[in-house]
Nucleic acid binder design. Structure first.
Lengths: 341, 341
DNA sequence: GCCCGCACTGGGAGCGCTCCCAGTGACGTG
DNA sequence: CACGTCACTGGGAGCGCTCCCAGTGCGGGC
């Protein structure tokens, strides 16, 4: 049978209330009493009943991570694995439990999330990878539940943690110009995501800083997947490019594969770079230049922010934007133009 | 303010109890009353308080997925992403919530899991990727909580779902012999996992069925990671092989990379195959022959089994073993030996 | 020596639900 | 017509905890 506060109290010769105080670390317990109670707890391996606790405290110590249905085909993108891992570690550090919500389709999404969110099972949610105008965000914000988005929201006044996608893409553009690239192609991320928009706008801004513009014919939109990068690259190779910025590493790897298939050598014939900073870009042939974003840190900050929203320390909306870093590798080591000059 | 049963009852002109019966779908409610109550619930968007419910029912509707600390460096292996996805979908279908437990190290593991498991927050757990003799399994089984392992356990009498690793590796061995391979190398999975043991034993059994044996010099153990496959392949190429079985696709991709670096052409100079059936093996150059395992199905079955353990329909230990399938692709299309003959 | 205040402790109330038992009224049977 | 039966409904009890208020005992100040 499971022990309860009352039992521990009886065994330690104190009352329920005193045991509760010890368990919750309240100071108003005489040291010797505290010690006696703690000894009993240790011996018996007592753990408070979470349901009873949260019934009265209205806190569950559980946070939810919601990833919308459209992402599932993209789940092989290492980004999500890393994000989930980061959120988990952040939760562990804070002593809260993580629940994961993925839906297979819109219907399941519509039914699943509100039910869980309203049942009071969760203290707050982190939402990621929504598309712009996603009704999910609307539904979530209409509840009183604290919420943090990973990635900049488009319309809603919600708290979020994001990386500086604009700045990263700006750096990328300047880098490609600086190594001597002339016809610069872009494999964009979906423009129905703020990430896609920010990376594209940043890239254009970076080109402008070097008095260049983006040729609309050399912009092809991908969907973050490897095959979409591959297909986009085929288009760009047909149109003629000497440098390509892929808005994600996964797409960059697809682009690299297409280049190989076409007998195009990177970086000699073509400079190529990605965005994200995943491990696979270090072992590709050649290793890819990329913009490294701090995924684990992003996740950790999202958890922290959410918990301070839950506890009321911070008011929504609050946002955090983390810096990214250009990592130069072989794939942009020699520019074709510079090689000529 | 959140509504409670009492409020709904008042609004519908019935008692708390009747509303409870409606919510729980009990038959003993007059249809017209039921309808009235359901109408009020729909209008108000009432959802029962999960904490109160589980306080009395001793069920939370939450299951845990535990992945031990040693896996984290391997988290980029698509296997875990797919498993998590599968478990999530299985949970959705069953109407339960999934909580995820990953620890960063042994200490965190020791502290995290028992606390959560004992708090009564969870109806049951799925554990995966334990190593043999893992104390985690011991700790988990010592609790009363229902438990299902993904992957065959080594010592404990616990329920599990696994794929037929032995049979898959047997098929692999026979395939490589049948295409005419002579010096067959193996990049093994860690032999402190039952998966590693089963795939190795199965491979040896397959060779024996073709009157072959495994040359101990041609067996190199990897750790499931891409770099470990790469390094193992370098060793095998030095020792001379004309076919290699890698016990995971990720390692096979690393092996392929090493082959490229050494100017070894697959499949002309060397037949290469993996195990898992991940997407990346279809886009590699060349696409890899592999043993496809049903990860999503494994996960779904694990959830099902766990829930029937929780409800008491099934007694532990119960096990499920799912079949795997050999998928032939270009990487073993022409054997070097057969090409000669 | 008395009283007040302080530090600590105990127990009642109640969180929102489920379970169970005791109604209540309609209907059928002897 | 009395009574038993059945279908349905209402409310008390209690799940294990936290919160709060009312003690209790001790020390210090007057």
């Amino acid at each position: 049978m499971r022990l309860k506060l009352e039992d521990i109290g009886r065994m330690a010769g104190v009352s329920r209330s005193t045991v509760s105080r010890v368990v919750n670390g309240e100071p108003s317990v005489r040291p010797e009493v505290r010690e006696r109670v703690e000894a009993v707890i240790r011996e018996t391996g007592y753990t408070p009943n979470a349901a009873a606790r949260s019934l009265v405290s209205n806190r569950t110590g559980v946070i939810g991570l919601v990833i919308p249905s459209r992402v599932h085909s993209l789940f092989e993108d290492p980004y999500f694995a890393r994000l989930i891992q980061g959120v988990t570690f952040g939760s562990n550090r804070a002593g809260v439990t993580l629940s994961l919500f993925l839906a297979q389709n819109e219907d399941e999404e519509r039914e699943l999330y509100p039910r869980v969110v309203e049942s009071g099972f969760i203290d707050g949610v982190i939402i990621t990878a929504t598309r712009m105008g996603d009704p999910l965000v609307e539904r979530m914000t209409s509840r009183q539940i604290p919420l943090v988005m990973v990635g900049r929201p488009d319309l809603h006044q919600v708290s979020y943690v994001d990386v500086d996608n604009r700045d990263g893409a700006r750096q990328a553009a300047r880098h490609l110009v600086d190594i001597g690239a002339d016809r610069i192609g872009v494999i964009g991320a979906p423009t129905n995501t703020t990430t896609g928009v920010d990376r594209l706008e940043g890239f254009i801004a970076g080109l402008q800083e070097r008095d260049r513009t983006l040729d609309p014919d050399l912009l092809v939109e991908g969907d973050f997947s490897e095959p979409s990068g591959h297909d986009a690259m085929q288009v760009l190779l047909d149109r003629g490019v000497d440098a390509v910025f892929a808005a994600s590493d996964t797409m960059a790897l697809g682009a690299l594969r297409a280049a190989h298939e076409h007998g195009v050598t990177v970086p000699d014939d073509l400079a190529l770079m990605g965005f994200d900073g995943f491990g696979a870009t270090t072992t590709s042939a050649p290793p890819l230049t990329t913009i490294e974003q701090p995924v684990a840190d992003t996740a950790a900050r999202a958890v922290e922010l959410l918990l301070s929203l839950v506890s009321g320390e911070v008011e929504a909306p609050t946002s955090v934007v983390l810096p990214v870093e250009l990592i130069e590798r072989t794939s942009t080591a020699r520019s074709p133009i510079r090689a000529e000059s």
